[in-house]
Nucleic acid binder design. Structure first.
Length: 529
RNA sequence: GCCGCGUUGGUCAAGGGGUUAAGACGCCUCCCUUUCACGGAGGAAUCACGGGUUCGAAUCCCGUACGUGGUACCA
């Protein structure tokens, strides 16, 4: 039904019968994290889609910070958000940190602007002052609350019975205002009007104005609510496309009315309400992470107020390439069987009309698979810094960069998370101190002991110590003694590694070198007796 | 309760009137490897339900059920 056409920097949206034409407007896509702590999966995916869309249309990708609610603003959260974005490779074109011509980009720094527009609305009769105290509101709701109507609204029917500039005599209102009585400004929703708009993902969506109440636009402390701020900012910043989570769909009618009253519907940005990312039960929440043992934030987040730490994908051992890849295909695909995308490839293939309508449940097993694929396909050069950091984290110091590269190349296929390098690479740096007794003891006898003693001597005299020569000697000795190769290789592996993991034994021997190989054999023979 | 949005295997999903209903993750079996993986070959498992429309419905329409979001001086 809905078709969208894009002409260079102008956007034409063709609805069933009406056409909204935005001329001379550059595509400006905005996202707006609220720094109340942590940047979760859904948030990063919204940013990612914003980024891809902006890049595809040569537009600007703008970050506005929603720090309007001082009571919930958390110190350090804003910096954290930008750290996450940088890790993901999604750096905005404009933001409080990066500047831009439409600043300030923090809502807390635009207070005066919001009040002006709120007052304008009152003057035009589209909003009104309300003096009801929180207690009075609560009393009203408690009184009217029934099983059939658990959430009474402050709506067209109710407002004439409340304490506001519509219901009260003009003189009393003037008096309340002049004495500085605390008040809010509420939007005056029309009594009976069908409010509809065209969503880029859902198509036409409509609401009856009677079911949305008179939302507060400006709070008693002078701060705007999200509703007012988003409309005013989008207008002032000349936003053409606004993507947000589907949890906002229900409040869209408020925003539509504000656009209608304030700036005109023809100037309104295109909305896209992205499907939610679900946890095992309901919208994915911070709690799900702790509950089910997977990260929900991009990076570790420690709330400075209570020192509670929530784990991030980065620290869990994810590559940012894998992280944004898994997010991108959670709700979008290009219609082919392709699943692995670099950011560059996403830019080429992404399209808004292939974004799903339904929410998707997050599956950590699949998320790990993406990371595994990215580790396997990344060059050792790409991985070296991250792996070195991970190794250092578990006490393994890789001093020789060439050696590190060699080790990464040998074990990356078997690492799902970067943290797996600790167990997978440890034996390349440290000789085992414990051995897999259960596997070795049943096979260990005098003949094997004699074999390995002889092997030591033979190895000592090998001129060129490499995998092939090692294997050749190993087999020859085994054949002379008529001992099964398999059992010997298994024992040899445990001697070098300690357990039954890792790449081919002879490769391991070659990599750690002749001296280390000999030392590990001696030590193991002593141990097994 | 009301309003919005949604519904293809356990999960992510392709398919949008005629298909043996793709593919991926996970699970199972086998091969490879006398290690752990990788890789390879197979397997089990799906159109929420009920009515229409149609020669024919996973696909279009209407109901119902279920899920989910909103219903704050939170975002």
């Amino acid at each position: 039904m809905q078709r969208l056409f894009y002409y260079d920097n102008a956007n034409i949206s063709l609805l069933a019968e009406t056409a909204i034409i935005m001329t001379n407007s550059t595509v400006r896509v905005r996202f707006a994290p609220s720094p109340t702590g942590g940047l979760h999966l859904g948030g990063v995916r919204t940013v990612l889609y914003n980024y891809l869309f902006a890049r595809q249309h040569g537009g600007k990708f703008i970050c506005r910070i929603e720090d309007t609610d001082q009571t919930r603003f958390v110190e350090g959260a804003e910096q954290y958000i930008f750290d996450c974005l940088e890790w993901c490779g999604l750096v905005p074109d404009e933001s409080p940190l990066h500047g831009g011509a439409y600043g300030p980009y923090r809502q807390s720094e635009r207070k005066a602007t919001y009040r002006k527009y709120a007052e304008d609305l009152v003057a035009k009769g589209n909003a009104y002052y309300a003096f009801d105290t929180p207690e009075e509101l609560e009393a009203m709701r408690a009184k009217l609350k029934t099983a059939d109507n658990p959430a009474p609204q402050y709506d067209a029917l109710m407002r004439m019975r409340m304490k506001n500039s519509l219901a009260l005599p003009a003189l009393e209102v003037a008096d309340l205002l002049s004495t500085g009585t605390p008040h809010v400004i509420r939007i005056k929703m029309p009594k009976e009007e069908t409010i509809s708009f065209n969503d880029m993902i859902h198509g036409e969506v409509s609401f009856e104005s009677a079911v949305v109440d008179d939302k507060v636009l400006l709070k008693a402390d002078g701060m705007p609510t999200y509703h007012l701020a988003v409309v005013v900012d989008d207008h002032l910043m000349e936003i053409t496309h606004a993507f947000r989570g589907e949890e906002w769909l229900s409040s869209a009618p408020v925003h539509i009315m504000l656009w209608k009253y304030l700036f005109g519907l023809d100037r309104m940005p295109q909305w896209a309400h992205l499907p939610l990312i679900m946890g095992p039960s309901g919208k994915l929440s911070k709690r799900d992470g702790a509950k089910y043992g997977f990260p929900v934030f991009a990076m570790n987040w420690t709330n400075p107020r209570n020192n509670e730490m929530v784990e991030g994908f980065k620290e869990k051992g994810f590559l940012p390439e894998a992280f944004i890849n898994l997010l991108a295909v959670l709700g979008w695909n290009d219609g082919t069987e392709k699943e692995l995308y670099s950011l560059q490839e996403m830019e080429e293939s992404f399209s808004m009309d292939r974004v799903h309508k339904a929410g998707a449940k997050f599956d950590f097993e699949k998320a790990k698979w993406f990371n595994h694929e990215w580790i396997k396909h990344s060059s050792t050069d790409r991985l070296k810094t991250d792996v070195a950091a991970v190794l250092a984290g578990c006490g393994i110091i890789a001093t020789d960069p060439i050696y590190l590269l060699k080790v990464i190349d040998l074990v990356k296929d078997r690492c799902t998370l970067l943290t797996d390098f600790c167990t997978q690479a440890d034996f390349f740096f440290n000789a085992p101190t414990t051995w897999d007794e259960a596997s070795v003891q049943p096979k260990w006898d005098a003949a094997k002991k004699e074999y390995f003693q002889q092997l030591s001597k033979t190895i000592t005299s090998i001129e060129l110590f490499n995998s092939a020569n090692m294997e050749q000697q190993f087999k020859q000795l085994a054949a002379e003694r008529n001992i099964k190769m398999g059992e010997l290789q298994m024992i040899f592996r445990v001697m070098l590694v300690g357990t039954k993991i890792g790449p081919g034994v002879f490769i391991i021997a070659e990599t750690i070198g002749k001296e280390a190989t000999l030392a590990r054999i001696e030590k193991a023979i002593d141990h097994f007796g």
